[in-house]
Design a protein around this nucleic acid. Structure first.
Lengths: 264, 264
DNA sequence: CTAATTGAACTGACCGGTCAGTTTGAATAA
DNA sequence: TTATTCAAACTGACCGGTCAGTTCAATTAG
């Protein structure tokens, strides 16, 4: 919710600034989106305000139930400005998806790298050590890859807490058969799943599995399952005010990996 | 997709036909919807056609993108007839949610009971025994509760294959903060989760856990995670044509339970 | 100067919901 | 049997409102 928060994220997120306007509407080439040389100053501020406003409105009410006029009003800009910066409502949403996903990817990635991120490192110390170490079938191994994955799940949970609106948007759009943004969505899903898959692969490797070791598709399925379970758990906490403790969630999700034995 | 298929399901589903209409709708009085004694014959046929049409249309394009006119046309009835049988578009969707959930519940329940269901029993014999029995941390225990849960996951996967449209509708509506059908949704979620939770509880008990044994919330979280992972996995198969093998999916999802050790 | 923004009016399509009227089939009357 | 009646079931044209998108002259800022 906090605007300041998002502005930061946007700054670091990098990839999102995207193109300026795009006329010559949809037609064939879905995204020519030429990379106009924008004036550095104000420009992004407006785009940012529009992003924020639409993220929260669309997130909580669904994009169909939100009008462009409302978005403009909430962002404190004119309707014309919305169309100047984004060519259409549809494009706006597409870029919004990209925007949010970049933040998520960033969080996942920094949660998945051993370095950096002192904040969550502190938080981590509660995950495995606590609870009398009841997790993971292999008894006393280092489990560094597993901890990294735990970090990622935790980060995802936190992300949804922070941007419930985006999670909502993602969920309701991602599994639509014929939606605009289908291409974007497929790409975004691929990116996110890629990150998760890589972390999952590390865990399996850590447990002594060779690359061709486990049944076909195991890594992919596990990554999807981990991601899906995390997403649904996180949304449940949000929407139904279920108080699923974070630790329990992390442990449970990680359990998916335990279906495959340590490979003796 | 096959209309015949759905009609069958409706017939067997039992709980859903609900006989005539279920008026006295949402109290609020918005729909006086008289308590009419419906004529037995034709009545349900029309409602059924409307159900089918809207399920497939709404499922694949989202309820906002589907007009009542379209539904009527697809059902081969007039628009007025839709309003005659259901008071409003919103009511129609609410009843659709109820309709589909009843089928799902039915499937889950019959998959979760040891008796009956020869068809899936046959299918079962491929789940655990196959794959060189690589599942479950406790080595050679009976695992009957676990098998039952596996049955349920399998049934859910099959359900989504059969009614992808409904799964889509469920996913995109379930986690909306302020939607109509909020009440219905909360109730439906509770019912489904209840069934899963009970099965999950059995598994834990089977592993020697007492009722107060495991950390607070474990059963609930596990149930949510199992359900969430299954749903997302199933939809992924549908929407992105990912060929996640059913067996791998079942095994992975069941893994969530392995996060909690057998409790020595 | 030029890029960015405003605000307000306007268009045109679309859509949920209504309603006066028609069809249907069964019960009743002749 | 045939005619009449009744109401449930159904029809589809129509209305009123909404909303994405357009246009443009005026204004501001770099």
């Amino acid at each position: 919710m906090s605007p300041a928060r998002k502005e930061e994220s946007m700054a670091q997120g990098g990839a999102l600034g995207g193109g300026a306007r795009r006329e010559a509407e949809h037609d064939g080439g879905s995204a020519p989106t030429r990379e106009v040389v924008r004036r550095p100053g104000r420009t992004n501020a407006t785009r940012l305000k529009i992003f924020e406003a639409s993220l929260s409105l669309i997130g909580e009410r669904g994009h169909h139930a939100v009008t462009v006029d409302e978005i403009a009003a909430a962002a404190g800009v004119s309707k014309g400005s919305v169309y100047y910066n984004f060519g259409s409502k549809s494009d706006l949403i597409g870029q919004l998806l990209r925007f949010g996903t970049d933040i998520l990817l960033d969080r996942l990635q920094s949660a998945g790298t051993p370095s950096s991120d002192p904040g969550s490192a502190a938080t981590l110390s509660e995950v495995s050590p606590t609870e009398a170490e009841p997790a993971g079938p292999p008894s006393g191994t280092p489990d560094v890859a597993r901890d990294r994955l735990a970090h990622m799940v935790r980060a995802a949970l936190r992300f949804v807490d922070e941007y419930p609106a985006f999670a909502q948007l993602w969920i309701s759009e991602m599994w639509h058969a014929p939606s605009d943004w289908r291409d974007v969505l497929v790409e975004l899903r691929g990116e996110v799943l890629g990150v998760v898959r890589s972390a999952v692969g590390d865990v399996f490797r850590e447990r002594g599995h060779a690359d061709g070791d486990l049944p076909a598709g195991t890594v992919d399925v596990t990554a999807s399952a981990v991601f899906g379970a995390t997403l649904i758990l996180a949304q449940d906490r949000q929407v139904f005010a279920v108080e699923h403790g974070v630790d329990v969630c992390v442990r449970t999700v990680l359990g998916c990996l335990d279906a495959v034995p340590p490979a003796g």
